[in-house]
């Protein structure tokens, strides 16, 4: 079991996971190895792990470790 903080809330992962697996779980969408949706489109999301950007191209080989703080961000209404 891996306990992380996801978007400010406690989140439990059943076992070793990557950022890509976490994003797929949260969005309910399967991802390609390059972090895009299966149709090649962008998800419009970005990930920060412990206050550092994890570029989409590295989601698939970036592990999430116990105690990590992960933020998954997207576009929201704003001026």
């Amino acid at each position: 079991m891996i306990d992380i903080t996801l978007n400010g809330r406690p989140h439990c992962l059943p076992g070793a996971s990557t950022v890509a697996e976490l994003v797929a779980e949260v969005t309910g969408r399967p991802l390609r190895a390059d972090g895009r949706a299966m149709d090649g489109g962008g998800l419009g999301l970005a990930v920060a792990r412990n206050s550092e950007v994890v570029p989409r191209s590295r989601w698939v080989d970036t592990a999430v470790a116990n105690g990590d703080s992960v933020e998954i961000l997207g576009a929201a209404q704003g001026g």
Partner: peptide, 29 residues
């Protein structure tokens, strides 16, 4: 313009989709 905020699966991607569909260029803030 759009802001960057925590992803909310309840309203997932709709603004991003809307702006893309309208063909308006996005300026994140």
């Amino acid at each position: 313009t759009v802001a960057m905020r925590r992803h909310d699966s309840a309203s997932a991607g709709s603004l991003f989709g809307l702006v893309s569909d309208l063909g308006v260029r996005v300026l994140p803030n």
